[in-house]
Design a protein around this nucleic acid. Sequence first.
DNA 1: GTATCATATGAGCAAATATTCATTGAACGT
DNA 2: ACGTTCAATGAATATTTGCTCATATGATAC
Lengths: 121, 121
Amino acid sequence: MSHGVRGRTSRSEVTPDVAERVADAMQALSAPSRVLILAQLRERPHSVSELIDAVGMQQSAVSHQLRLLRDIGLVVGDKRGRSVVYSLYDEHVAALIDQAVGHVEHLRLGAVSRSSQRAAS
Amino acid sequence: MSHGVRGRTSRSEVTPDVAERVADAMQALSAPSRVLILAQLRERPHSVSELIDAVGMQQSAVSHQLRLLRDIGLVVGDKRGRSVVYSLYDEHVAALIDQAVGHVEHLRLGAVSRSSQRAAS
DNA sequence: GTATCATATGAGCAAATATTCATTGAACGT
DNA sequence: ACGTTCAATGAATATTTGCTCATATGATAC
């Protein structure tokens, strides 16, 4: 199929620096546990306890991942009493999650899980 | 290829299974080297040698990453003589890359990268 | 005050990853 | 046939990652 070179829009060149930032951001979506957390937060804000319950991970693991997501800037935490309610940073993050999920629907990758890279010679 | 078993065309629930597939796909964009490779291929197909030159990696490293991208289904390789010309699998992949880059432009809030983790609360 | 709940954090560890080195194989030129 | 070039592969390695355990901090209840 021909994929014509679509008009040369002013799309920023992906320099090594940009590539690193892209990788950093996408890294947030590269672990199932984080995808689950983000998917929950896309529905509505959740406290940490709610997230723990929703994704079935340990408190510490959730907290660690939330810190990562906070550092990357995808989520924010609002302290309410002794709870902390987390939400997505903004709509762009929600859109990013939607698109990631959407693309996966399309790329029906039953191909290989990232564990099997074995080939007998 | 109608294979959709779930009649849920709206936003599908992100089950652990879906989360794993999302993570798997996003994992492809979670390493700078792969982002660079994909960005090159988004412009136009490249042979492996061209990619090596474009991204400044070693032949073996590029080949390994291409295999990963092939396995995930993001790129395809076409053998032409002794070269192999790689291209993105389809437009959806191109869109995925565009969106990832676009979102990073937006998320350029000065979020720290993984290296320097600071508690900000 | 002390106890308890909710979350954050650090150390340590196992598993996954990304790269390099060395080798292999296939396609071409001579 | 031989040698050369382009790419793929396997093994080894260093780094990164995600989790658990233990502990710390902060807020509320008693």
